[in-house]
Amino acid sequence: MFKNFNPIALFIYFVYVLFISVFSFNPIILTAGILGAVFYCLFTLEKKSVFKLFGFCAFMFLIITLTNPLFSHNGRTVLFFINDNRVTFEALVYGAVLGLAVIEVLIWFKCFSTIFDSERIIFLFGKISPKTALVLSMTLRFIPNFVSNFKSINTTQRLIGSDSRIKRYLNSFSAVITQSLENSVITSDSMKSRGYGLKGRTFYSRFRFSTRDIVFIIISTVLFALSIIGRTDFVFYPSIDAPSLSGFSIIGCFSFSALSLIPFIYELKEGIRWKYSISKI
């Protein structure tokens, strides 16, 4: 599976993809990145949580697209005037691209958080800074933990027969805050008593650095460099100016598409191999 690559290689890969997604304002590249992340999510995550995420993303996209023209009045193609302010086609398109950028980062971070569990984070940062690694892994777990605890406490309160809804929510909220504070103290105490972060303490990790990780890093670095070289920016104001398709920009788009499709292609390859080996048995 893709997540069984060495965490260092995976981390480098995510830095590459997110770097390009955040800094290039090009609808072609953004769409390619979204497709890569979406395919990977569909292949590996639970269907229910994936559709929940997509619903949220579609909502975000719509909101950003529709609000940008209300606040930005630049652009030559006027659609109509609201309160003597022009609403332009360019601002609408700019909003759509902005929305694409936001949901791309959202979906990639979803992939990131499913791949990087606490074990991988401790492996990555544990040696450099044990404290940061612990804090990072605890904070990443904090909100999902908080939500699930809140839900269970709230359900219990309801079944006991707590009177008003607001009172019940407040009670559960204060209980869950206390619980999470206590938990964090207990965690840090128990880590300390086991000698976490002491000098000379070694970490066991089940991750090895093999040749496939090196190949993976080399391939993604080459694709990253190519997409940086072929980087093209769109101009939206005052009128949309798409850069003409030169050799460089085509190479850039293709290499970024390839880069973002790596996880999906890898999963697909393994899936096909698994099916094939089952049929041989």
């Binding site: 006027v78 109509f80 005037f81 609201i82 309160n83 003597d84 022009r86």
Partner: peptide, 10 residues
């Protein structure tokens, strides 16, 4: 509360 006009009208 919004007045919407076409460019020609405006």
């Amino acid at each position: 509360s919004c007045s919407i006009k076409t460019p020609e009208e405006y």
